[in-house]
Amino acid sequence: MLIVFCPNCGPRPVEEFRFGGELPSPPESITDPAERDFDQVWMFNNVAGIHTERWYHDAGCHRWTTVRRDTRVDRIVEQHVSLRPD
């Protein structure tokens, strides 16, 4: 079972959360702003590997948290990832 560490409520089974999808991140190779916008809206990295994604704590504090999960084995490798630049 996946356990997500909610920064407000503590470690919880993933069933308490709603999946918010991968963070859209167009590849660096796309430089045209319009093409980057298009990619951001429609395309997915759909990584087979470490996937940065958002979860919403629906059954608890109603706040979002970000984790990194290995989609090949379905394990969270990093909890409560900060998205703010240092």
């Binding site: 079972m1 069933e15 709603r18 999946f19 999808g21 087979a48 994604e53 989609t71 084995v73 379905d74």
Partner: peptide, 13 residues
């Protein structure tokens, strides 16, 4: 399942 995954793990849930 709601989350993206390449795992073929079946779940009790």
């Amino acid at each position: 399942d709601r989350e993206q995954s390449y795992s073929r793990q079946s779940s009790f849930q």
